[in-house]
Design a binder for these strands. Sequence first.
DNA 1: CGTTGGATTGGCT
DNA 2: GCCAATCCAACGC
Length: 201
Amino acid sequence: MRLGRRLPRAFFERPATEVAPDLLGRVLLRRLPGGERLAGRIVEAEAYMDRDPASHSFRGRTPRNDVMFGPPGRLYVYFTYGMHFCMNVVTGREGEGSAVLLRAAEPLVGFTAMAARRGTDDVRRLCAGPARWTQAFGIGRPQNGADLVRGRDVYLLEGEPAPRSRIVRTTRVGVNVAIDRPWRFVIRDDPFVSPGRPAGG
DNA sequence: CGTTGGATTGGCT
DNA sequence: GCCAATCCAACGC
């Protein structure tokens, strides 16, 4: 498939609710410490806005969410449930706390390395979930704040953006507040979308 | 300082 | 459907 060029800074300097659907079909590239390359096509993403009760940024800037408030186009990685990492693309203007959670991807390059990290050969489960994807791609604390526009270890390519007609808008997974906001975007009928368990509340 | 619960996942009933 | 795993940021005293 077509990979295209890198997404420019301006791509990210928009509201998360605009960036999230526009990320579907784009390609995340990862260069592992050993030099091996991994690639995945984004099929599911969620927007987290400034002053959004479900967002980590809701209660203001802290050491944990600091990257969210920085310049757009960087990676915000957080640790949760004592064992998982999730990654976000920082959006909006510097000073705002908004980002897009990367929830699922179709593996394109590096199946063997992903399978080894994930402990499964099932291609459909390598990157189908935010913590599964970071595990498959070797994303953790060291990648928090990584610049996707200029960095070489993790970055985004244009890929083939999903047509609007193929994009489905639903409610976000695992959030128990602001559950009325339909800010989860997926490619319709794509087999690599996460199982996405329903949230309570 | 102590408590709480989390943008999840995998395993079991 | 239910629950444990396992850390730690955020918040209240």
